[in-house]
Write a protein that binds this DNA or RNA. Structure first.
Length: 501
RNA sequence: GGCGGCGUAGCUCAGUUGGCAGAGCACUCGGCUCAUAAUCGAGUUGUCGUCGGUCCGAGUCCGACCGCCGCUACCA
């Protein structure tokens, strides 16, 4: 059995969940669901990143302890994921004891291997912030927050000898052409490496909200190194060797382009330093823009899932982002496009197909769904669609997988139109075309279930099938002829009521 | 400044090794009336950013230019 370990970034608890966070999480969820259908052993991880200066500061501003602050925000992410039917198997928080143990173990291994050494960091420091700045951050040479002079300060820090890994990283990229996707992002990562890597500071003494360095208690690990290691923590790094070696390195990281450097350069190198394999794959996607602008707190243009789910439903929400936003390039979010896609694909094509088929089955077949023809003209297309969808999920390209699936929906509508069973007398000809249409609905329910978590099951139930499309196995479940016939078909209210533009 | 990408129908995009310009949405016309003003069929729209080159033939290859964008350039 294949193993599929998929992760989202752990989201920083300094921000409320918005559609950008949700995009990564829904994509990971859909991939996890697809692989579960394929019978793979799946582990789907998401979580929150809870250490670091920004959390500490926000906590102070809110009159909370850092842990209380983290608890509040972490809960918001968990609520958002519950709202969106996210099926994660684990939820990691970097403040958990299991994670502290794993970070210490992994960094200790890198230290023991000689890749972490004591050095001196020199930078511009604001005493009030207790933080370093680089010149570009400064406003008129002053701290951007306190508007006070900064001073040049030296601090003893541990450094990760990243510069020693350039050759090994280049080699790794050469040996694993699919390790970073899409191609453009892989080139960016390679560009970073070939542009020359510098050793990087991985600890702080000026901050205490983090994981203590095991060999030197005056330091805590800088939040990024703490954060990246979550992927190893969750599958038992340092605690359960058997479990860890079962899941690692069969890991697929999904990330946004903003954190490419950390995941495609620092993280593989750190894995090498600690003596474990780099991740199997990192898939990098772009940003969701709103009106062409990047979402940001200061621009007041953040949209949250909770704004849209009441209008589109969970399935309408998930479908839009998986189908309309290509995985890779930046995408522009618009309410109008979301309504248009919902009406065209969900209401008009899929929802209406279910409605018309169940209506005619009631008029011509006494409500009992007939079996499909083994030699249906739609059978070949169904097989082709499955192949395309499977390949697309693998890339990953959810929009292409769903696009392929909808070819089948359209073909079923066209086949009905050609046969006009509503005009014919009940009999084998009517049964044949309706059976084929029901079979298409069954297959589409399976293939679309990673996106349409709820309505796929509802279609399944309405066409009289036992169980759930979430419990079937691919590729068998996509083979033509699975609809048994002779089962009661339910006439229901519209699955996806049309929305006004 | 360096590296890379993009510019194809009103919109979002696909175009494999150069071989008659495509899909979905929108729009127009027609059919149908089982269905959620749904569906089905037909059709319109493109100087494939500009100019030049190679070739029997260029959206595709080469060069220049225009426009847009990404990454990067001492930013833990």
């Amino acid at each position: 059995m294949a193993r599929y370990y998929v992760t989202t970034p752990i989201y920083y608890v300094n921000d409320a969940p918005h559609i950008g966070h949700a995009y990564t999480t829904i994509t990971a969820d859909a991939l996890a669901r697809w692989h579960r259908l394929k019978g793979d052993d799946v582990w789907f991880l998401t979580g929150t990143d809870e250490h670091g200066l920004k959390v500490k500061r926000s906590a102070e501003a809110n009159g909370l302890s850092p842990q209380e602050q983290a608890d509040v925000y972490s809960a918001r992410f968990r609520e958002a994921w519950a709202l969106l039917d996210i099926s994660n198997d684990d939820y990691i928080r970097t403040t958990e004891a299991r994670h502290h143990r794993a970070v210490r173990a992994l960094m200790q291994a890198a230290y023991n291997n000689g890749w972490i050494t004591l050095g001196t960091y020199e930078g511009l420091y604001c005493v009030a912030c207790e933080a370093y700045y680089v010149e570009d951050d400064l406003v008129d040479g002053l701290c951007p927050i306190h508007r006070r002079p900064v001073e040049l300060l030296k601090e003893s820090n541990y450094f990760f000898r990243l510069s020693a890994f350039s050759d090994r990283l280049v080699e790794w990229y050469a040996d694993n052409p699919g390790a970073v996707t899409p191609e453009a992002k892989r080139n960016e990562a390679l560009g970073l490496i070939k542009g020359g890597l510098q050793d990087i500071s991985v600890t702080r003494t000026s901050l205490d909200w983090g994981v203590r360095v095991p060999w030197d208690g005056k330091h805590v690990f800088y939040v990024w190194y703490d954060a990246l290691i979550n992927y190893a923590t969750a599958v038992g790094y340092g605690e359960d060797t058997v479990r860890f070696s079962a899941w690692w390195p069969a890991v697929h990281h999904l990330i946004g382009k903003d954190i490419l450097r950390f995941h495609c350069v620092y993280w593989p190198a750190l894995c090498m330093a600690a003596g474990i394999d780099p991740p199997h794959r990192v898939s990098v996607h772009g940003f969701l823009l709103v009106g062409g602008e990047k979402m940001s707190k200061t621009a007041f243009n953040q949209i949250s899932p909770a704004d849209l789910v009441p209008i589109f439903g969970v399935d309408g929400y998930r479908y839009h982002f998986l189908r309309d936003q290509q995985f890779g390039p930046d995408g522009d979010f618009s309410y109008e496009a979301m309504v248009a896609r919902y009406n065209a694909d969900l209401a008009n094509n899929l929802g209406n197909l279910l409605a018309r088929v169940s209506a005619v089955v009631h008029q011509k077949c006494a409500g009992i769904g007939p079996a499909p023809r083994p030699d249906s003209p739609l059978a070949g297309l169904a097989a082709e669609v499955y192949r395309s969808a499977d390949a697309a999920w693998e890339r990953p390209a959810p929009s292409e997988a769903l696009e392929a699936t909808w070819l089948l929906v359209r073909a079923a509508n066209a086949a009905l139109e050609a046969a006009e069973p509503w005009r014919a007398e009940p009999g084998p000809a009517v049964d044949a075309v309706l059976g084929d249409a029901l079979e298409v609905l069954r297959i589409v329910a399976v293939l679309a279930s990673p996106a349409l978590t709820r309505s796929a099951a509802e279609i399944w139930r309405r066409i009289g099938l036992p169980g759930s499309p979430l419990d079937v196995c691919l590729p068998e479940a996509a083979l033509w002829g699975g609809y048994p016939g002779g089962v009661a078909v339910e006439r229901g209210t519209p699955l996806f009521p049309r929305l006004k533009a």
